[in-house]
Design a binder for these strands. Structure first.
Lengths: 122, 122
DNA sequence: TTCGTCTTACGACTAACGTCGTATCATCGT
DNA sequence: ACGATGATACGACGTTAGTCGTAAGACGAA
């Protein structure tokens, strides 16, 4: 009688030591996914449906899986919702300073000019 | 009578301020291209054919173009050869610390375990 | 000029990716 | 028990990306 998240697919997360740089870079090389990660840096944890990206739910699920399997985010279940968080510490252990450099780079470049892309900047 | 590189296609390089983070991440998210960049950090400038990657020449040209148009490398012509160099300073102006974080991440992760991929490590 | 070398351009093929619609499943509230 | 909600799985589609072979261009040497 497990009452919460009993027989769901089980959310695969790679171990910190197994996170692959290529996977992380590929995961972050997509505008939608980078927006997700940027959002997550501000809000530590968020429900799936609450991200400021305008794609279909199934597409969003796909992006979450890419990020999750790359080791960038961690997802946990709570009732009918799935909460998503950045694996900040794990990433910093595996690739010190990398995620921060990328997020800072985004902010820095967008402060200098606004011509990058304005997906979900509101 | 221009004697060097007279009517070649003219090598398009984006201005430093136009370098796009998404493009850089996408460019670096490929094993072959990351190997090129890693090689370039050690050797400041190299001829095209001298990179330790085993792909067809035309494929190599393709990767050089991706890196060049992303603003990661700069290429200049000298006779029949084309020399390639990293745009270290430009990238550091545009995205401070980013390239170094990525290259350091690669070295760091590969020092911990050798299971990433060994393309051209000899 | 002629040849050989270095590099690219072009076209083609295949695999991977981003996108979506629909169906399904688990959970919570009534 | 029933319906509504949040999220996923699956299958499909079009586009992009990585790969190669072949042809062609520019340069240097003989």
């Amino acid at each position: 009688m497990p009452r919460t998240h009993s027989r769901r697919p089980a959310l695969v997360h790679p171990d910190t030591g197994d996170i692959d740089l290529q996977d992380v870079l590929r995961a972050l090389a997509d505008p939608t996914r980078l927006t997700i990660v940027r959002t997550l840096r501000t809000d530590p944890e968020r429900a799936c449906g609450t991200f400021p990206v305008d794609v279909a739910p199934s597409t969003l699920t796909h992006h979450f899986r890419v990020l999750r399997e790359a080791g960038v985010i961690r997802q946990r279940e709570d009732g009918t919702r799935r909460w998503t968080a950045l694996r900040l510490e794990d990433l910093d252990i595996r690739f010190p300073g990398l995620l921060d450099a990328i997020l800072t780079a985004y902010a820095y470049a967008n402060a200098a000019d606004g011509t990058t892309h304005e997906q979900a900047d509101d």
